[in-house]
Design a protein around this nucleic acid. Structure first.
Lengths: 220, 220
DNA sequence: AATGTCAATATTGTTCAACAATATTTCCGT
DNA sequence: ACGGAAATATTGTTGAACAATATTGACATT
């Protein structure tokens, strides 16, 4: 189950591990990542670590300041707004041209089920996770490897923002039913309605997110 | 005028230089890029070069095979199809929500002018260049930094495919007038028509591209 | 106490040399 | 011509080194 990516180069594996730390919130936004400390921690050379840092910087998860080192990116309102702009473009676009027998719809439907169950059990983390799966599946409707990869990056960046919030998982809960509606609309071959519903969803989610972000103390 | 990006880290500057070689066709698809040869050529260490290679690999311009090295990516029909899928999503999406006073429209209009002039002078390279500017400006209509950056990557990848063709620039020429039409539709606040026109454009361009690619001998 | 200066220290940026692991080529016997 | 083993070259990764830049701390001045 735990695919470690053994064949991949060290830097890629490293990047993956650090990414996991980032989205799980074990590294806080703004925190400085010392090359010496991390190469020690992961027991790799500084050179290999630097390659990994570069990848994550390109993904927008780390920020690089010349001669000062790399820092965990600090999500801003601007970045959240931009990310939701991207999501509207990609997710609504994918839905609009969706075809009702597409295999990804099965994944969407399963994610809705998982989300509902998790919500009923009060498992907020599970709700969030099911939500991620749902929206990734929506992107898969477009059948584009490049869009899927790009969305992964955007999604990781958004999770960084969620990490700032004190009570992040509750945000997802109200959206389980909207996912259900969207899935149903696609299944019924009403792609335009599905896209419209997704736009409503994303606008609401964006507002909720920004509102929650507003009352986060420091952006330092 | 020649912004060398002096403040940037060496690896980034290197990546930029190599990228220029790639899209200008000085490095052919499939070609192997020896670490030793290139670190010699650019007078940098192997480590720095490897960092640059990693960035370009992430951009899809290079391919990395374990213990065998990096190669210039060989564009396939599949990649062209995927890229045009992305372009339809992004460019049509950007047009659909375009607002007639957006500053990017000025850039689009200027690009149309440049393209027309270049075409009339038989400057096919200029036509292609103007075309690039036009479509990048279309993306800018979305006001998303992340989409702009993503499109840059996609665009570079597509240029790699053009490099395979024997007579690449002629492909752009017929599209100058379509760009004009699209710009006009946006100016007249008919974003849906503009998007529809763009879809026609992209479908046609994709077919043309695939047809031209079909008669390229080796894909080795 | 607050501030500015300058040396001492730590960190990043980059290079180089080394070696293990893996590919590629060369050579040789059949 | 062919298969296979030895020789060679390349990548993967490490460690140390040093220059350039940033941070810290001590000290003197106001």
């Amino acid at each position: 189950m735990t695919e470690d990516g053994d064949g991949l180069p060290l830097a890629d594996r490293l990047a993956r591990r650090i990414r996991a730390l980032l989205i799980s919130g074990e590294l806080s936004p703004g925190q400085r990542l010392s090359e010496a400390a991390f190469s020690e921690r992961f027991d790799v050379s500084r050179n290999s670590l630097r390659e990994a840092f570069r990848l994550l910087t390109k993904d927008g998860l780390l920020r690089h300041e010349a001669n000062r080192g790399v820092f965990v990116a600090v999500p801003s309102m601007a970045s959240v707004i931009d990310i939701y702009r991207v999501r509207r473009m990609l997710e609504c676009g994918a839905l609009r041209q969706a075809w009702p027998q597409h295999p990804a719809i099965r994944v969407m439907r399963e994610a809705v089920g998982k989300g509902r169950q998790a919500r009923d059990e009060g498992d907020w983390r599970g709700v969030g996770s099911a939500n991620m799966i749902f929206h990734a599946a929506v992107i898969d409707l477009s059948d584009s490897a490049r869009l899927t990869e790009f969305y992964e990056r955007i999604s990781a960046e958004l999770r960084l923002s969620f990490g700032l919030l004190n009570d992040p998982e509750h945000l997802h809960a109200p959206f389980v039913d909207m996912n259900d509606t969207i899935a149903t609309l696609v299944e019924e071959d009403r792609p335009l309605d599905a896209a419209a519903q997704m736009e409503t969803y994303l606008n609401l989610a964006e507002r909720t997110m920004l509102k929650a972000l507003e009352r986060v103390p420091q952006h330092a």
